[in-house]
Design a protein around this nucleic acid. Structure first.
Lengths: 239, 239
DNA sequence: GCACACTGTGTGCGCCATACGCAGACCATA
DNA sequence: TATGGTCTGCGTATGGCGCACACAGTGTGC
C-alpha cells in the first residue's frame, strides 16, 4: 500500500532518516504562500513559478516538494480549511447548521476553492476531519453509514452550489457586484420573454421576487429545505 | 443593452446585412467539433488550435467566431445539452424526477461538462430552457418564484454533485474504475483509523455499507431526500 | 572517510491563449 | 457598373504555463 508522496507528507508519515541535505521548506510554507497568492488574485494567480518566486525559490525546486500542480492544489486545500469546527447543539439539526455555516465561512475566506478542479475523492487529513465532524453530528439519528454519507454529500454540494451564485460578492467590490446583478437581470429580461419562457419571465415580473442573489436568509432558507429532506428520511427510518 | 457577441449569435439575433466575405462556418460547426474533442479526451483536449485544426482552420480564424475560450465553452455547453426534455407526469415529483434524470443523462453523455469552469450565470437559450422546464414542473405548487428558483438550484447542484462521485464510471474502463474504488477504500481504511475518525472507520467496517459509489439506486434515494425537503416546504406553505 | 541518495538549480521543450497587421473578398451605394 | 469600406481568414509573434532532465553540491549512515 503505497501512498502518493503528498499524502504521506500531509499525514506526517515519515520514512527513515535519509542522507542528503535537509529540505529548506516544509509543505506548510508552500501551502501558505500559494493560499496567499490565491486569496489575492484567484486560483489563476497560482502557478508553480509564482509560488516558487514568493518563497525565494526557483520554479523547479518546488517539484522537490510536490509532484505536480494537482498536488499543490491538495496542499492548498489542506491549509485553506482550518481544522474541522466544533459542532455544539443538542440536536443534529443545530449541529449540521453549524457545520454548513462553517463550511460557507471557509469558502468566503477563500473563494478560489470553488475553482479547484476536483479530481480524486478526499483523503487529506482536514478534508476527512470535516467529513468526520459531519458524520458525527448524525450520531443520535437512526441513519446508516451510507445514509449519513449521502446526507453529507448533499450538504456539501448545497453549500458549494449556493456559494457559487454569491461568490462575486466576495471577489468584487460592492459596486461591481451590484452592476453585475443588474446587468444579468436586464439581460434575462431581454431574452426570457413572456411567450418563450413564461415561468422565468413571470418570476422577473415581481421586482423583489426571483432574487438571483442569495443573501444570508436565502442560504438559511434553502438549508432548511435540505434539512427537512434529511428529517423525512429519518422519520421513515423510525417508523 | 448590448449583448456579448456569442449570445447574440446563439439567440439568432442578426444585425443588418454587412459587406465583406460570407463566413465559412457557423457556431454550430464549432460547437460540434469542440464537443467531439471533449467527448473523446475530456475538456483538456479542447484548445483553440485543436478545434481549429479539426475544422481545417487556422487557430486565429476561430477568433472570428468566438471572442475567447470562455465563449467557446458557452457554445459547447449549448450544443452538448439537447433541448429541454418533455416532463410528463401528473405530479410535480414525477416531473422533477424526469428533469433530474434527463440532466444526469446529459452529464453521462458529456462528462466534461463538470470540468467547465462556471463564470457567469446562464443566459444561453438551452440553459434557460432547462431552467424554464424545471420551473414549469412546479406550476401546480404554491411555491413562489424565488422558491421555485431555489428548488431548481438545489436539484442542479444535487445532480452535479452525485454525478461527480460517479464520473469515473463513464470516463474509465470498468476495470480501471473498480481498481480506483478499491484503491480509495484501501487508503481510507489505512488513514481513517478507529481512534482518529471513528465515524468514517465505523462506516468502513460494514463491507457493503458506506458505498462510496452511487449507482442508480443511490441517485434515486438521494433525490428522494431532496424532493422530501421541497415537499416539506410546500406543506409549510399550504398550512 | 566514503559512497550515495537527496537537494536545489539551469536549460529547454511543447503547449497554450491571444494581440496585431495584412491581403483579399464581398456588399451597399453611387 | 464602379468603388469604398468593412469584414474574413491567415501568418507571425509574445508571454506564459507545466514539467522533463541533467548536473553540482550536501550531509547522513555505514
Amino acid at each position: 500500500m503505497e501512498l502518493p508522496r503528498v499524502l504521506e507528507q500531509l499525514w506526517g508519515i515519515e520514512g527513515p532518516a535519509r542522507p542528503g541535505p535537509k529540505p529548506t521548506f516544509q509543505l506548510s510554507d508552500i501551502g501558505a504562500a500559494a493560499v496567499e497568492l490565491a486569496d489575492a488574485g484567484g486560483l489563476a494567480a497560482v502557478s508553480m513559478s509564482k509560488v516558487a518566486a514568493a518563497l525565494g525559490f526557483t520554479t523547479m525546486s518546488l517539484y522537490r516538494y510536490v509532484d505536480s500542480k494537482d498536488d499543490l492544489y491538495t496542499v492548498m486545500l489542506e491549509y485553506a480549511f482550518g481544522d474541522a469546527p466544533a459542532l455544539p447543539g443538542d440536536t443534529w439539526r443545530e449541529r449540521i447548521v453549524a457545520w454548513s455555516e462553517a463550511f460557507r465561512d471557509a469558502l468566503r475566506a477563500h473563494p478560489w476553492i470553488l475553482q479547484v478542479p476536483i479530481t480524486d475523492p478526499p483523503l487529506s487529513p482536514r478534508q476527512l476531519s470535516w467529513l468526520e465532524a459531519g458524520l458525527l453530528a448524525f450520531h443520535d439519528t437512526p441513519l446508516g453509514a451510507t445514509e449519513k454519507l449521502s446526507a453529507m454529500l448533499l450538504l456539501n454540494v448545497y453549500v458549494r452550489g449556493v456559494f457559487q451564485m454569491t461568490v462575486h460578492q466576495f471577489t468584487e467590490t460592492p459596486e461591481e457586484s451590484a452592476a453585475a446583478t443588474q446587468r444579468y437581470t436586464d439581460r434575462l429580461r431581454l431574452l426570457a420573454t413572456e411567450d418563450r419562457f413564461p415561468a422565468i419571465a413571470g418570476g422577473l415580473r415581481q421586482p423583489e421576487d426571483f432574487d438571483v442573489d442569495f443573501d444570508a436568509d436565502g442560504f438559511a432558507d434553502g438549508l432548511e429545505t435540505v434539512l427537512d429532506g434529511i428529517q423525512a428520511r429519518i422519520d421513515k427510518k423510525q417508523r
